[in-house]
Amino acid sequence: MGEDSLFIRPIFELGPVQLTNTVITTWVVMAIIGCFAWLVTRRLQMRPGRLQTLVEAMVSVIEESIRDIAPQHVQQIMPFIGTLWVFIVIANLIGIIPGMHSPTRDLSATAAIAFLVFLSVHWYGIRIQGLKNYLLHYLKPSPLLLPFNLISEVTRTIALAVRLFGNMMSLEMVALLILIVAGFLVPVPILMLHIVEALVQAYIFGMLALIYVAGGLQSQQLRQQKQGENHA
């Protein structure tokens, strides 16, 4: 681990496309997650073993978390939100392996994920409520809040990207500085903090994304509740 590792440099270029170590690490993470998912789920049993129980518990926790926030749209948003949690956890933790770097220490990667969250909020909102109803929710509770709502959409997306990027990059930077100053094995406590921080940041990112998506669906739920009350 040297000073160069703090900077994202292209490994090779394919025309206008630059393949950085972030992309390569992301592919590794995808391969690990994909192989694990395939291996675990190819022989699922009605009487689960330990590993299947662990996976089922993980999926159930994700499902229940989403159900607590958006109980009517679990099936639609679970793949996206669940993948956010799983990917960011693995991507954050892979940085503690010597020679590997977390993709989430790259602003391009976190910005890409945050941009997907931004798009998903509108995608799910328009898909479930329709374009008109979805756009109308920017005018509520007052049309005067439209600029603030629009600014909020942008700033919270930037905040998502920068928060994850800043935390993960700072952890690696601190570990690198301590390694340079103090020597080998001294940054181990910082690596322990890295694990905790990786889990916390993944949870925060995924939960915020879930809240943003659920917030886009909230106006639909409120309207359905009002209609139900009127019918009653």
Binding site: I8, P10, P16, V17, Q18, L19, T20, T22, V23, T26, W27, M30, I33, G34, A37, P79, F80, G82, T83, V86, F87, P103, D106, L107, S108, A109, A111, A112, I113, F115, L116
Partner: peptide, 21 residues
């Protein structure tokens, strides 16, 4: 911000969403 990484990460994540689903 590396646009190549940005776009590839978007694509990678969408592929991962499909794989996990």
């Amino acid at each position: 911000l590396n646009w190549s990484t940005f776009l590839l990460e978007i694509f990678n994540f969408l592929v991962l969403v499909w794989i996990l689903k």
